[in-house]
């Protein structure tokens, strides 16, 4: 009897294996053609992109939108490797401490988490000085939203209420230490006013709490709530970018409203420190080239992700400036938060 069932099992597993093989054949992505066009030797093998967040998240979205164009420019495949955990810190620790600086491993680097991780937690040991910043791709500006049936019609209504009720207005953010958390702190510093910050577990729960009138406002990001604002479920009162967004041209910037505040979260690519010059140059050139590709730009536009290309030293300086800023904010509030 055992013999017979073993036969059956062999047949079943044989079927399964052949099924898998067929599916594999369908599932393998096409190799990019024309590797011969590349002058320099780099890259002559696939490049690994470490992702500090789970597949399907915001940073994966950038990888999926950017990946195909970047592959074409570089003439080799990009392989995503997901190492989620500790808001990206596990992947970034691996990138800086355990990865060969040969240009064949990159990581998507998100601000402000890239810096706030180690500013807030002494257990996290890497710093941005151990990176070669390659290029920032998008910056999703901060935005202040309220529910569609909120009494606050304009930023002025909002600020009047906050002035009359110091520390009473409830405002959601995406979590203590996240970009929106720092944005609200920066706003408080710039205006001298105070609000009651309610941390949530991510951008989604944060704006949903505002839309459901669970909190009075939410400080979040344009890309996250663009469709909700457009459909009228949320009202945007102010945007924290240098100039008005093309997506929501009616929403005033904080600067117009007399608050000196530009904030948001950025996503780009970085390599470990000390990669070969030709690899760095090739990567930077590729990003500069795809940023001119209308198809790529349209993809970002459709996903409401505003492009913000900063390459090489400019990106490095941007990270360094942000690090200094976040450090000073965190140091000033650390004691009060931990009370």
């Amino acid at each position: 009897m055992f013999k017979k069932s073993l036969w059956k099992k062999a047949v079943i597993s044989g079927l399964a294996v052949s099924l898998m093989l067929t599916m594999t054949a369908c599932g393998t992505p096409n190799q990019p053609a024309g590797t011969s066009k590349v002058e320099s030797d780099y890259p002559n093998k696939p490049i690994t992109v470490l992702q500090g967040f789970a597949a399907g998240g915001g940073s994966d979205q950038l990888a999926m939108l950017t990946g195909p164009y970047l592959q074409k420019e570089l003439g080799n495949t990009l392989v995503n490797q997901y190492i989620p955990g500790a808001t990206g810190a596990i992947a970034w620790t691996q990138l800086t401490k355990q990865t060969a600086a040969d240009g064949y491993t990159l990581s998507i680097t998100n601000t402000p988490m890239l810096m706030t991780n180690y500013l807030m937690n002494t257990e996290i040991k890497y710093t941005i000085d151990e990176l070669t910043p390659i290029a920032n791709v998008v910056t999703d500006p901060g935005i202040l939203v309220v529910s569609k049936d909120s009494p606050f019609k304009t930023y002025q209504d909002y600020i009047n209420y906050v002035k009359a009720n110091p520390g009473q207005l409830t405002i959601a953010n995406s979590g203590t230490g996240g970009d929106d958390f720092f944005t609200i702190l920066q706003w408080q510093k710039a205006t001298g006013l105070s609000v009651k910050m309610i941390p949530f577990t991510g951008d989604g729960p944060s704006w949903q709490a505002a839309a459901g009138n669970k909190v009075q406002a939410s400080s979040t990001n344009l890309g996250v709530v663009y469709s909700q604002v457009k459909a009228g479920n949320l009202r945007a009162l102010a945007i924290y970018s240098e100039k008005r967004s093309d997506l929501l041209p009616d929403v005033p910037t904080a600067k117009e409203l007399g608050v000196d505040l530009v904030a948001g979260s950025s996503r780009g690519y970085s390599a470990p420190k000390g990669i070969p010059e030709n690899a760095k140059k090739k990567l930077i050139d590729s990003f500069t080239a795809i940023a001119k590709d209308p198809a790529f730009l349209k993809g970002l536009q459709d996903a409401a992700l505003p492009i913000d290309l900063k390459v090489g030293d400019e990106y490095a300086k941007y990270l360094k400036d942000q690090e200094t800023e976040f450090k000073s904010i965190w140091d000033s509030v650390n004691d009060t938060i931990q009370k």
Binding site: L6, S13, V17, M20, T24, Q81
Partner: peptide, 25 residues
């Protein structure tokens, strides 16, 4: 000999499933 057969075929099966098909590490 059956153990060897089972071991080898199962190892290959898992590899095909996880790595070739699902691109998992």
């Amino acid at each position: 000999w059956k153990a060897v057969l089972i071991a080898l075929s199962f190892t290959v099966f898992c590899y095909l499933l996880f790595v070739m098909f699902l691109h998992l590490p």
